[in-house]
Amino acid sequence: MSRENSMAKQFLNPPALGAVDSPYSQGVRAGNTIWVSAQAGHDAQGRIVGGEDAEAQCHAIFARIGAVLAAGGARPTDVVMVRGFLKQRDCLQATWKVRKEFFGDHKPASTTFMVSDVEPAGALMSFEVMAMLD
């Protein structure tokens, strides 16, 4: 059975995202579906990128998401669902801009929420995605 069709799970923890000291993975691939854990806008050492700049944080988030997708053999165009968790509604415009750059003409389904807090401290938002490979 080819690896692509195997139903054994693959844990996706690209080293570039930083050491994982956690009961969870940055992403999991099972068959042709990939679940990417919510990512916040921090670097591999856990430091928030760009201070209070929503666009900078969002850009860092989607760079991380891209790395996890790539670890699973997927690309932005394989994403079917995006969920955004924002501390402030006024971050929305910045996220739309970054998402347009990341996805190009590809339009996954999407839900955005306002939430009361985001990990880690200083994070304005987090995003998760789900991808399905052909």
Partner: peptide, 27 residues
């Protein structure tokens, strides 16, 4: 967010060698 450390602790026991993807949402 202060519930997170407890959730991580119990997740280590519950999931063992498994490492699921994870999204916390603070509401």
């Amino acid at each position: 967010k202060r519930v997170m450390p407890e959730l991580r602790r119990i997740s280590i026991d519950i999931f063992g060698a498994n490492r699921p993807a994870f999204t916390p949402v603070i509401v």
